[in-house]
Design a protein around this nucleic acid. Structure first.
Lengths: 256, 256
DNA sequence: CTAGTTTGGGTACAGTGTTCCCATGGCAGG
DNA sequence: CCTGCCATGGGAACACTGTACCCAAACTAG
């Protein structure tokens, strides 16, 4: 299709606007790799992963579709670059030295989770492909370094890193389903997940009905907090030197 | 395309074969929902998620594309049905009563992981959509019941279930990347992940280079085993009654 | 001013999900 | 017997997708 509006045909309003707009006179913004990546990320965050097509991306950048292929080998490469860019948004090397391994791991895991959580659709990209971009490698390197310097042996450091990555990934992946509506047969009857659990036959699924609230009232961050705490406690048990300064866990609340 | 071979034009070899083949005379196998689901699952397992298109699926079932839409509202529904079918392949209610919560959770988590691991591509379906099919609900109900009957309060049961689900999901999702080859610029230089880590600049990524073996020598099941152990230990700490029969963890091996 | 190299992009092809509409076949009613 | 019906099967078409080929515009070097 010719798209009509994105072309700057002389005499058209868009042409005039570009001609004596208040900004710099060169309205033809050059295409760069960065513009492609940020444009793709914007498009994904705004309209979801499914909305990212090479044509849409080209339209977003006000250029032609095939132009993108001058900077990128294909859509796959765009996705890889976007994923690594997001991973790079986490500012990891904050104040770090004085803290014990628990605090550092908490800090790192949470900042990774936060940055991925702000680009929900991107998590799926990272989940199904080994992230080998520089930002991803830097993060891995940093976490492994923290573990080694705190006395973890090689296998334990690798195992703990893998578990942390798994935990972060799963938490972020499952987060968008929090606002899930079930039963879309008609537009009228859309249930929230909690009401869906409540509406199940109590004879068949007694616990799902009874735990409808418990299963759906947690924030994704709270769930992550819980899982991270469990994992770190488990790691503490596995440390060779029994340098276990005991600490009292705090969320075993019993509700009404 | 007309496909030529799947059409039984009278007089063609295929027609004759169907006419007096050694099997039953009715060669036109009727299309059913079950055939669609199992066909889709076969296709996914055999050639990956990307190979599942409505046309491919129709060809697999030796029928026309639009016929599928008589039984299914679209591709999304096929995927949902496939996901729930896979979830249903886990035989969960094995011998269960005598065991403590640790053993039961291990058993259930492992069997879920095993069944998902045998259909690697399907895990991605479950990760990005709330599974609300009957088999999925049955599994959730069973696990929650186990937890409640073993003395977990409502929130703790829900939290622990969520963590287990996350762990299983992430483990299965990351499993296919185990046979990942990096650096596919040319067909000549395809590195395994371990060699990729080894080939990194040691000045920039010292720990990644040093831990190349540790990061890649684990089986997915072993990693899962480790994570599950950590998690269960963490859960044990959070149990209200300090019914902690201590047990010695066993994998803090220090390698060469 | 010309030659050449980079950058931008229209057209085209194969493949996707989905819908419209027509053909076929078995079965009930006359 | 023939006739009409209706659920099932499927061809053609539409609006997309990623990508390759090839041509036009623009800028740079001589």
């Amino acid at each position: 299709m010719t798209d009509g509006q994105s072309l700057l045909v002389p005499g058209s309003p868009a042409w005039w606007a570009a001609r004596h707009g208040r900004a710099e006179p060169t309205r033809r913004v050059p295409v760069t790799l960065d513009r492609i990546i940020t444009g793709a990320l914007d498009l994904i965050d705004r309209e979801g992963l499914g909305a990212l097509s090479m044509r849409n991306l080209a339209a977003e950048l006000q250029t032609g579709t095939t132009t993108l292929y001058r900077y990128v080998s294909g859509k796959d490469e765009v996705l890889v670059l976007v994923a690594d860019t997001v991973l790079g948004e986490a500012q990891l090397p904050r104040a770090l030295e004085g803290l014990g391994w628990r605090e550092v791991l908490r800090e790192l895991a949470f900042s990774m989770r936060t940055v991925l959580s702000s680009h929900p659709s991107v998590a799926a990209l990272i989940a199904t492909a080994v992230p080998v971009g520089p930002n991803s490698l830097r993060a891995r390197e940093l976490i492994l370094g923290v573990l080694r310097e705190r006395g973890f042996d090689r296998t334990l450091a690798a195992d703990v890193y893998t578990m942390l990555a798994h935990l972060v990934l799963a938490s972020v992946l499952q987060e968008p389903m929090r606002d899930f509506r079930a039963g879309g047969l008609g537009a009228s009857k859309s249930l929230t997940l909690r009401d869906f659990y409540r509406s199940l036959p109590a004879g068949q699924y007694p616990h799902l009905v009874a735990l409808a609230d418990a299963l759906t009232s947690r924030t994704a961050a709270e769930e992550f907090e819980f899982g991270l705490g469990c994992l770190l406690d488990g790691v503490e048990v596995r440390l060779p030197q029994a340098q276990t300064r005991r600490h009292r866990p705090r969320n075993t609340t019993s509700e009404a």
